[in-house]
């Protein structure tokens, strides 16, 4: 496998990429993504997207929340509203990427070498990447991370298409169960990951505020839900911090 080139040190890139791929298939996220994207693929079918569109959205956007927003609102909301909601939901990538860079950068890493690994950066790849790449020699980390990202994205892309076809072929009861999987899983993962009052409160308030905002028919429902519920949660968090 190892073909020495002028660019990379002898044993490096291909092997590190393969190691990354192998880590992806051994990761618990491989199965989490499989389940989650089966559900999202099914939703895409019910909202009348094509299977190609669904798979492309997984590869290009690579952010389950943004994809969910796009799929569930594109047909009924204005484009501006969808754009704002997607933008807000993806802000998290900024601190994630910034936090990952010190781990991935090596001697002579160029800015453009980082574009691909940063595209692979989503919660799953980021968590596993931070944990595993940090254990490797610096020169191998970018290739390893790319392998990891490729493997996990592959599982999600296959599941996207799989869920799409399942929704088309399953009897209504099972299709309903598949469509219910994503909201249920998002609720569970958010609940488990909410280590602080702020996270839990933001999510809980969001669940309650959306119906209220939707009933008012103001438009921009997701944006208002985020701003109102998120800000209330943040203020509560600040007040409690102040008390302590």
């Amino acid at each position: 496998m190892s073909e020495p080139s002028a660019e990379s040190p002898p044993k490096s890139a291909a092997k590190a990429f393969a190691d990354g791929l192998r880590s992806a298939f051994g990761s618990v996220f491989f199965y989490v993504l499989l389940g989650n994207y089966l559900g999202i693929g099914a939703l895409a079918h019910e909202f009348n997207f094509s299977v190609l569109w669904m798979v492309l959205s997984t590869i290009l956007i690579w952010a389950a929340p943004a994809q969910l927003i796009l799929i569930s609102t594109l047909g009924t909301s204005t484009l501006i509203e969808v754009a704002i909601a997607v933008t807000l939901s993806s802000v998290r990538f900024l601190p994630m990427v910034a936090g990952l860079l010190p781990t991935l950068r090596a001697e002579g890493t160029r800015q453009r070498d980082l574009v691909l690994p940063m595209h692979f950066t989503a919660i799953s790849v980021w968590v596993e990447g931070l944990r595993l790449a940090g254990l490797l020699p610096r020169a191998e980390r970018v290739a390893f991370y790319n392998g990891l990202g490729t493997g996990l994205m592959f599982s999600a892309a296959v599941a996207s298409a799989g869920g799409y076809y399942l929704a088309a072929t399953l009897p209504p009861l099972l299709a309903a169960a598949l469509l219910f999987f994503t909201p249920m899983a998002v609720l569970m993962v958010s609940a488990r990951n909410s280590r602080t009052l702020l996270d839990g409160l933001s999510f809980g308030l969001g669940l309650v505020v959306w119906p209220a905002v939707a009933a008012m028919k103001l438009g921009l429902e997701l944006m208002w839900t985020g701003l109102i519920a998120g800000t209330i949660a943040y203020v509560v968090h600040r007040v409690r911090e102040g008390v302590r």
């Binding site: 998290r92 399953l170 309903a176 998002v186 308030l205 969001g206 959306w210 839900t225 519920a229 800000t231």
Partner: peptide
């Protein structure tokens, strides 16, 4: 960053509420 994360979290909760309250396709039959 804390505030932005709170807004984004609430927004995703809004998506969950939307899918459960105004569900697509087969889920609407439940």
């Amino acid at each position: 960053i804390l505030w932005v994360r709170a807004v984004a979290t609430a927004l995703i909760a809004g998506v969950v509420a939307r899918i459960v309250l105004i569900p697509p396709g087969a889920l609407a039959g439940v």
